[in-house]
Simulated assay, not measured.
Amino acid sequence: MHRQTFTTTFLGVLATLTAASWPNPEAIQGTIPGSINSTLDPGLIRRKSDGKLFLYTTPNDLTVFTSSSLYGPWTEEPNTALYNHGDALGPGNHGAPSLHHVDDLYYLFYNGHDGVHESNHDGLIGVATSSTLEPGSWDISAGYLGITWMEKYNILDPTLLPKNESRGQQSHLLGFGSYRNGIFNIPLSDDLLDVPAPNGGNNLAYNSTGRHDIEGSYQFYHNGWYYLFFSSGECCKRSGEADQDASQWHWPENAGNVYKVMVCRSEEPREGFVDREGRSCLDGNGGTLVLGTHGNVWAPGGQGALVDEEVGGVVLYYHYVVADQRDEQDVPYRFGWNKLDFSSGWPAVVSV
């Protein structure tokens, strides 16, 4: 996740946002996972062996919540995901977890920082493997993927699109990108631990306006289409000035300028993404609004998608802020989810 304020967003989004209506996040029993330090950029997966859900989130080397049901109750695990695995970055420098199951192994992709380039352009993406998903079980020996640093992208916010040979997709694809020239993907090796062509990133989506405010992509194949979800807008209550006192941080005044979930789609995994109106998402500022601020839900984003039998379909999960708490100094972020209806060919948030 990139941390800068911005003043503009996609053309037409503000009008759509004010007219749209979405259901609230589905009710969760017990404590809703969330705090200022524990629910940004959620990654969600259900373990194959016993159906246990694992919710990984950004801070403290990836805070972990578990549950047997999407409806809760959720339990915060006593140890974070990488608590026993130090690396050269030191503790507290890993984030934006993305969880996937491929060929009997679980894969965790996450953000790091190289400490060499300027702070808003020094991203790295690491990969780890586990057979259980349990905190402390991750093998991080593969380290960080050697994607070539370039001015045009930030190497942040990983997501995996597993190979789909029936559709002619011969390689696993890693999605990434934050601000700058937007969202990219790049082929991974068959074991998902290496990048054979480190400068082979394809540009998928871009916002040419303002601060180029798209990030946090999630690639998802469903019913003949490749969907590209991403967050647009300001993620967080902050000023963008690293040395400014936190009490001076603030949100944009307009709800249209904070995080919202957008989507584009294509029949190909590496090109041709358009929105529902047919606008190119690469050179036409395209993007169809899926979920925005509404009611007491402020700045939903950091999203992912999960096919889950418990709700009989696809789940959109995300973090959000309780709107009437958004001006508190230690504003809490919460985990939320809703079902998606793809009957029109485009994802729509619906109640279960």
Rank of each mutant, 00 (worst) to 15 (best):
F273V: 03
N24K: 13
F273A: 03
E277C: 00
V321E: 05
V322K: 06
R3F: 00
A197Y: 01
A255M: 05
G34R: 06
E76C: 04
L156K: 05
P73F: 04
T75G: 01
E165D: 06
P196E: 06
E268Q: 14
V321D: 04
L173E: 02
S343I: 03
S232Y: 09
D139H: 10
Y317T: 02
N111A: 05
N181I: 05
P300S: 14
R47P: 04
D122Q: 13
A197K: 03
I125Q: 03
D324S: 14
Y110D: 15
G286D: 09
T31W: 02
D275A: 03
S166K: 04
S131A: 15
H121M: 11
S49D: 12
I45T: 08
R279C: 06
N24D: 15
L161V: 13
L306E: 05
V290M: 13
Y206S: 03
T31M: 03
G143N: 03
L188G: 01
G336N: 09
H319K: 07
P347H: 08
I28M: 03
E165R: 05
G112H: 11
L156C: 02
G345H: 04
N296F: 13
P269G: 13
L124S: 07
R276G: 01
Y206N: 05
H2R: 10
G43K: 11
